[in-house]
């Protein structure tokens, strides 16, 4: 563990901070540079629903919202105020669940998204890579071709459509799984089988749709990597020396092929997160995605801002974790 390893860690942390800063700055700038500002958007919405008709009331409403959304003062002042609020964990109250603060809503849904995303990302990554590696190593076998065709048809399907099709098939047509939600209504939280099994049953379909799309992608990637690596000189050399297939497969082929897949996982977490958001919406799963949808539905601007900000922070941290785990698998980073 030399100096270069330390440099690597510092670089990764710096990159993570940069992503957070760039992402949050973009989030800050979007409403301030878009042709309609969020106050107008929200007021128009309210007027369309016939809530405020009196011009004075509209003006008052506009003033109040401008203040509430932190849109008063110069851009610089707004930016400083935005960060200060963020760092002290204050994102203002949510308009749709007034006066509940945005932070507490996010805190309530973050664990659901986190758990769903983490489990499915790991399951999909591990299974996809295992199957892909086997299919790549035994590329001439019939089952390898069959698996490839399945994976290639699963992978390009957008998360939304996959979730939707599963919902229709396994909740409407053959109602084996619940239509949505995270747990049966009225069930008391507790560490008992009924509660846990209900959580698992509810999480199954959203998880399955995320896993299916994910497996397809990792499978295809890994299969391609492995078919390249099996013709590397060190693999041929070991084969010629009579090293058993098992050892070659795991220690020579897979260990090398996994490295780009780890980087790939870090790079794709953002995409997978997008998928989780939309899947939650389909299954009414009470995570960030569902929160975002209810915010859109209720015209709750500060809640959407909050979801965007925390998505960026959450994904960046997850990426950092994967990046920091990378040296465990690649001696070229660890032992320079």
């Amino acid at each position: 563990m030399g100096k270069s390893f330390l440099t690597y860690v510092i670089q990764r942390i710096a990159q993570c901070l940069l992503v957070v800063i760039i992402g949050i700055t973009i989030t800050f700038l979007i409403p301030r540079f878009s042709p309609t500002d969020p106050v107008e958007a929200v007021v128009n919405r309210a007027m369309m629903m016939g809530q405020f008709s009196h011009p004075d009331a509209v003006e008052m409403m506009k003033d109040a919202l401008t203040k509430l959304y932190g849109l008063d003062g110069t851009l610089g002042q707004q930016y400083v105020r935005f960060w200060r609020g963020l760092l002290s964990g204050d994102l203002g109250p949510s308009l749709s669940s007034f006066p509940k603060p945005v932070m507490s809503l996010i805190r309530g849904s973050l664990p659901w998204t986190g758990a769903l995303l983490l489990t499915t990302a790991i399951i999909a990554w591990v299974t996809g890579n295992m199957l892909g590696a086997l299919a790549g190593y035994y590329a001439d076998k019939r089952w390898s071709h069959v698996l490839s065709i399945i994976a290639m048809s699963l992978h390009p399907i957008p998360y939304y459509i996959m979730a939707f099709v599963l919902l229709v098939l396994l909740a409407y047509v053959i109602p084996v799984f619940p239509l949505g939600g995270a747990v049966a209504i009225g069930l008391k939280p507790g560490f008992n089988w009924i509660y846990i099994s209900s959580i698992l049953r509810h999480a199954f379909l959203p998880a399955l749709s995320l896993v299916l799309v994910g497996i397809g992608g990792w499978f295809v990637g890994m299969r391609a990597l492995v078919t390249n690596i099996v013709s590397e000189d060190y693999v041929t050399y070991a084969e010629y020396a009579g090293v058993p297939n098992r050892t070659i497969m795991y220690q020579y082929v897979m260990k090398n092929a996994l490295l780009p897949q780890i980087t790939g996982l870090a790079m794709q977490l953002g995409l997978i997160f997008n998928g989780a958001l939309i899947t939650e919406y389909v299954f009414n799963y009470p995570g960030l995605g569902y929160l975002a949808y209810s915010a859109i539905f209720a015209g709750d601007y500060s809640l959407i801002m909050g979801v965007a900000v925390f998505s960026i922070i959450g994904v960046s941290l997850a990426v950092l974790l994967v990046d920091l785990a990378y040296p465990l698998f690649d001696p070229r980073v660890k032992h320079q």
Binding site: L18, T27, G270
Partner: peptide, 26 residues
């Protein structure tokens, strides 16, 4: 490339939701 990598990693959907929330009608 540092900036580029940040864009690779950023979760795009929340940002698009934000943008479209504000200007979708037009």
């Amino acid at each position: 490339m540092v900036i580029n990598d940040s864009f690779v990693v950023l979760p795009v959907l929340p940002l698009l939701i934000l943008i479209n929330f504000i200007i979708r009608e037009q």
